[in-house]
Amino acid sequence: MDTNVIKNFGSINIDNVYRLDRLPRAGETLVAQEFARFMGGKGLNQSVAAQRSGADVWHIGAVGPDGDWALDQMRAFGLDCSHIFRVEAPTGNAVITVDQAGENQIVILGGANQTLDQALLGDVLAGLGPQDWVVLQNETSFVHQIALAAKARGARVAYSAAPFDAHHAVPMLDMIDLLAVNEHEAAELARATGKSVADLPVDMVLITYGARGAELRQNSARLHQKSFPADVVDTTGAGDTFLGAFLARLDVTGDAEHALRYAAAAAALQVEQPGAATAIPSFDAVTEFLTRKAEA
């Protein structure tokens, strides 16, 4: 019998993280207290979160000639790297500044993430089927074409409309089953479409509100989930952690309320550690956290 698989056509970035007292203003030079290199990218973060939350995950993406370190890190995460392609463009990377409160500013270079196309992905696209969730974001190329191929083969499509671009997001709405946005992206999408998020033609809409929790809108139903208190160190990747964890638990259990609560716990634990993918908690860590909360 076919088993459900989450196939994430996702970005792979090397995150260069600089920790500062505060974020720089325009034209200002600041001295960093710390520097660290981590694995990141919205797609990779989501894949790690889904895999650590109990899902069967394929990460599908590309790295450049400089990608050996990235591949070693991904294998250490336990990800299936058999669909990571080698291309001539440099591996995607990001410059991230983080202040003492854990807030960040991020600049990314797409690099190899922007090389996904039919020539690379033909065999993977042909293998999609109803047993799959396909996950997409705006940090890679070929997003619309992948969504079309997935729907033509009966797969379910989850789309994170970030970094937000109305020209990317609006055409996706007729091709997806789950839309994930934060509150700012939801507002921009409403302006672009002239409709509230509740009126969009998407079965499920997941809206994250940072410290104010999250909401799932499914048809006429709404589920609210409060955030868990956290000692914030770094918010980089928190939204990706939430989506990956939510999708994994929804896929495994079919219980949206459980998936929301689990995802909120995973995100709370993730922001208490530096980095993005490396900070994503294990299933056991999240389960233990939730057990403590239930007993408190």
Rank of each mutant, 00 (worst) to 15 (best):
L200A: 03
L120T: 07
D123L: 06
N138A: 14
K226T: 15
G129F: 05
A149M: 10
I96C: 04
N4E: 11
Q73W: 04
R292P: 08
L216H: 03
D234M: 13
D66E: 05
I176M: 06
G64Y: 11
A76T: 02
Q114N: 08
A147C: 06
L116I: 11
T29M: 06
Q51Y: 14
A198L: 15
D56K: 06
A190E: 11
H59I: 04
F228L: 15
E257Q: 13
I84P: 01
N8R: 04
V107G: 07
D66K: 01
L290I: 11
V143M: 05
A26P: 14
L20E: 04
A32C: 15
R75A: 08
E34V: 14
L30N: 01
D174Q: 03
A264R: 00
D203A: 07
G244S: 10
K293L: 14
F228H: 03
N182F: 02
Q73T: 12
G92P: 11
L243G: 13
T278K: 04
Q145A: 13
L247H: 02
A221I: 09
A70W: 10
L290D: 05
P274M: 08
L269C: 10
I106C: 01
G194V: 12
L30K: 00
F246E: 15
Q105R: 03
D56Q: 15
E103I: 12
G237N: 06
V17M: 02
A285I: 13
F77S: 05
D117M: 14
L179H: 02
V232C: 03
A162H: 04
R25L: 14
R75I: 06
E257K: 12
Y159N: 03
L128M: 05
M39I: 11
C81S: 03
G244N: 11
S282D: 07
L23G: 00
G154T: 06
R217E: 03
C81A: 12
L23M: 03
R86W: 07
D15A: 00
V124G: 08
A192V: 14
F38G: 14
K293F: 15
L109Q: 15
L44H: 14
M1H: 08
L136W: 07
L20W: 10
A259H: 07
K151A: 05
E215S: 07
Q51T: 12
A263Q: 10
A296F: 02
M204S: 15
L71I: 15
G194Q: 08
D15P: 02
G127A: 15
M175E: 13
G154N: 12
A214P: 10
G210F: 06
S53M: 07
E288Y: 03
G213K: 04
L247K: 04
F38V: 06
A267R: 13
A214K: 02
A268K: 05
A70C: 11
A169R: 04
N93P: 13
R217P: 01
S141Q: 08
V181C: 11
I12P: 01
D284A: 08
E288G: 10
A126S: 13
A149S: 04
P274V: 15
R25I: 10
G54T: 03
Q118M: 15
G239S: 04
A221F: 12
Y209V: 13
T97P: 12
V233G: 05
S196H: 02
A267P: 07
G78S: 06
E183Y: 12
L125I: 08
D234P: 02
A101S: 07
D2L: 09
L79Y: 00
T29G: 01
